[in-house]
């Protein structure tokens, strides 16, 4: 799998990236690069990382996801991690993974709402 297989959709100024289900380490790394590249050229108001197809979230993959969220924050873009499956959520918690203050949502709809809310807050400041 290469970075061309990573789907990125732009919808109402928000970038929606589908995280591949069973990526090898190389794909995980190129996923991060691709997200940052696309953000630089699109200047989106938000980023949604859809992990609804991810079956195995180990500490390596989780760390890359968290790094990506931090990098997006440095570039001024709020990010929401969306669609974590229940078994993955339980496993991540038992594993001891911490997602800190990362915004999370059950599905795409709520993820979009969160970003709209977040951007409105920033504008009103």
């Amino acid at each position: 799998m290469t970075r061309d297989n990573i789907s990125v959709i732009r919808l109402r100024g928000i970038l929606l990236v589908t995280v591949p289900p069973e990526p090898d380490d190389e794909t995980v790394s190129s996923f991060q690069e691709k997200v940052l590249d696309v953000m630089a050229s699109n200047e989106p108001r938000g980023l949604v990382l859809d992990i609804s197809t991810v079956q195995t979230l180990d500490s390596f993959f989780a760390r890359t996801l968290m790094e990506t969220v931090q990098m997006a924050a440095l570039m001024g873009t709020p990010t929401v991690i969306a669609g974590m499956r229940p078994d993955v959520a339980i496993t991540a918690t038992l594993l001891g993974l911490s997602f800190g203050k990362t915004l999370t949502a059950r599905d795409m709809d709520s993820a979009f709402d969160l970003i709209v809310e977040k951007t409105a807050e920033d504008l009103s400041r």
């Binding site: 079956q55 195995t56 180990d58 500490s59 390596f60 078994d87 339980i90 496993t91 038992l94 594993l95």
Partner: peptide
Amino acid sequence: GTMDVTRIVTAASELIR
């Protein structure tokens, strides 16, 4: 079951890595 499979595969992933 799905819960157990996800736990087993994730633990395996950590140890293989």
